[in-house]
Design a protein around this nucleic acid. Structure first.
Length: 271
DNA sequence: CACGAGACCTGTTCGC
DNA sequence: TGCGAACAGGTCTCGT
């Protein structure tokens, strides 16, 4: 599920709350539960879980696909991986299947991490960089310019799609948005990165920002049983559209494997 | 350095 | 209808 737009949407909802639940900024933690031990990333934080009690959530944000909860003297970091989801419900509500971890607040609500496939991870750390340090720039970062992006591409010989999925190069793009961005930029997913001109790199960066922004404006994408609430899945131009006509030229969209990932593109428009 | 395979997991969908 | 295979929004590690 969660690529940058989905994580951004979740962070915003948790920060601001909704009609039925309050925002979490300012809420004091009084207890926590871990029901699948591997959900807590190594190394096990010193004093966990007692140290969480009494801490207040001061801010909620995102870096790449990581959710960040700034506490009084530590940061709680959560990565949803493939099937993770967050929800806020009253403490007395019975746990659901696949609830792996939750925080209980004095206000009577709890923040629950639900994760069917158990790939998701939670960190509690005083040193965020130990978790986030290897991430490349955020796609929306002002420090990421057409020129620096072009330098990232020309500095290596690699198929462009796996490169876009490499979080150490640029942080936040996943399988859906990579396919959508490459289509909009007219670039074949297997094209080698160093063959992309400066002009085309600028177009690709603009396409990446455009699809991520569209995703955010639509509250992310919901597919199958994973993630709900988003609407971007109705605006896919190539993803999950194998055999359907390309919106530009009508050619049937093709699906292949690139770097072990399902990859959708128009064989005529993308070169 | 770049790539592929395998691992980590469960649930859903596909193909025979 | 049933059953195993294939596949899924992600990332890490290992071997070549």
């Amino acid at each position: 599920m969660p690529e940058l737009p989905e994580v951004e949407t979740i962070a915003r909802i948790l920060r601001e709350g909704s009609a039925s639940v309050p925002g979490l900024v300012g809420q004091e933690i009084c207890a926590c539960q871990l029901t699948w031990h591997k959900t807590l990333a190594e190394p096990i934080p010193e004093g966990f879980p007692e140290r969480l009690a009494g801490q207040v959530i001061r801010q909620i944000g995102r870096r790449g696909k990581y959710l960040l909860f700034e506490l009084d003297d530590q940061t709680l970091i959560i990565h949803l991986r493939m099937s993770g989801d967050m929800r806020v419900v009253p403490v007395e509500e019975a746990p659901a299947v696949h609830d792996r971890f939750w925080l209980e607040f004095r206000s009577g609500f709890k923040l629950v991490f639900n994760d069917a496939r158990k790939f998701g991870r939670v960190w509690l750390t005083s040193d965020r960089e130990s978790v986030l340090g290897k991430l490349g720039p955020d796609p929306f970062s002002e420090s990421l310019t057409a020129a620096s992006f072009h330098a990232l591409l020309s500095g290596r010989k690699r198929s462009i799609k796996p490169l876009l999925l490499d979080q150490s190069i640029i942080a936040g793009i996943g399988n859906i948005y990579a396919d959508e961005a490459l289509f909009r930029a007219g670039i074949h997913p297997q094209r080698l990165s160093h063959t992309i001109s400066k002009h085309l790199a600028a177009e690709l960066l603009a396409a990446i920002r455009e699809v991520l922004q569209l995703g955010i404006e639509n509250n992310g994408a919901s597919i199958d049983w994973v993630y709900r609430g988003g609407g971007f899945q109705n605006k896919f131009l190539v993803y999950a559209r194998e055999g359907q006509p390309c919106p530009n030229c009508g050619t049937a969209i093709v699906k292949i494997k690139v770097g072990q990932r399902g990859t959708h593109f128009c064989p005529r428009c993308q070169i």
